[in-house]
């Protein structure tokens, strides 16, 4: 049978109609059944949960003793961050960078030597204008109302657009199954799986239980201060009012929310 143009258009038209018909007519079988899950109008939030309008962190790295990695160890143990043992596959939520790497625009050769040598703790900035959220095609990366830029690992397809978009290198990809590379699995927090991207979540799971972020709690020097930027009386706001501080690559317009006291 040879199909002429007229035949082809007829078939194409009928196919299109049959595709859109269910959406217009919407018979009972085409509707997704909605299962009532709960009678309560809104789910309760435990009264002890820590809440804020805009979570942020201030870091006073001058308080960090040389070679101290308490915050990193605490975070990575809490969140089952794997250690693949090679820099190419490295997965990190919080790590250290030299001043020149963390603040490329502010750094120059005649900067105070102690500052040039200083290792700064760096992590996801939970940007108020996060490029990672904008590029994520599946909305696996999203911004919560309290400012936390969070990952829904269930939705991540591992496309790594977010890694390309983040100007801070705050995101890591699991190129392999991370489970065998986790020194000791914390049973209270899930692991990730091969093919998903992960990053700091500002300890949202701990905030929900009324606990501060693991890194903040682990720091004996109180170099990390966590709090609500929208509350003028919060510890972090009072601290930032007193001390000069910088944001990483603020000129990019991502509005990072990790404030570095220098």
């Amino acid at each position: 049978m040879t199909t002429n143009r007229r035949e082809f258009l007829k078939i194409a038209g009928v196919s299109t109609l049959s595709l859109i018909a269910p959406a217009i007519v919407c018979p009972a079988w085409a509707k997704d059944k909605i299962i009532p899950v709960s009678n309560s109008p809104e789910a309760l939030s435990p009264s002890k949960a820590l809440t804020a309008k805009r979570w942020a962190m201030a870091i006073d790295a001058s308080k960090c003793p040389a070679d101290c990695v308490d915050c990193i160890a605490a975070c990575h143990a809490t969140h089952n961050v794997p250690g693949f043992g090679n820099p190419k596959d490295e997965v990190k939520w919080i790590w250290q960078e030299k001043f020149a790497a963390a603040f490329p625009n502010e750094s120059h050769a005649y900067l105070r030597e102690s500052l040039q040598k200083q290792q700064l703790p760096v992590l996801c900035n939970h940007c108020a204008n996060p490029p990672c959220v904008r590029v994520c095609p599946t909305k696996a990366t999203f911004q919560r109302h309290d400012g936390i830029v969070m990952m829904d690992y269930h939705r991540c397809i591992g496309c790594r657009l977010c890694m390309a978009a983040c100007p801070y290198g705050a995101r890591s990809m699991n190129y392999r199954d991370p489970r065998p590379f986790i020194a000791r699995i914390n049973p209270d927090y899930p692991t990730r799986t091969k093919g998903v991207v992960e990053k700091c979540n500002f300890c949202q799971e701990r905030l929900a239980k009324g606990l501060g972020p693991a890194c903040v709690v682990a720091c004996k020097e109180k170099a990390l201060v966590f709090g609500d930027m929208e509350n003028p009386q919060s510890e972090i706001r009072l601290l930032l009012e007193k001390r000069f501080n910088l944001l990483r690559r603020a000129s990019l317009g991502t509005k990072p929310q990790i404030y570095y006291i220098l």
Partner: peptide, 16 residues
């Protein structure tokens, strides 16, 4: 449960 907890922070469920 998954979507509520991850995306909306609903960590308690009241059964019928």
């Amino acid at each position: 449960w998954r979507d509520g907890a991850v995306r909306e922070g609903k960590r308690l469920h009241t059964a019928r």
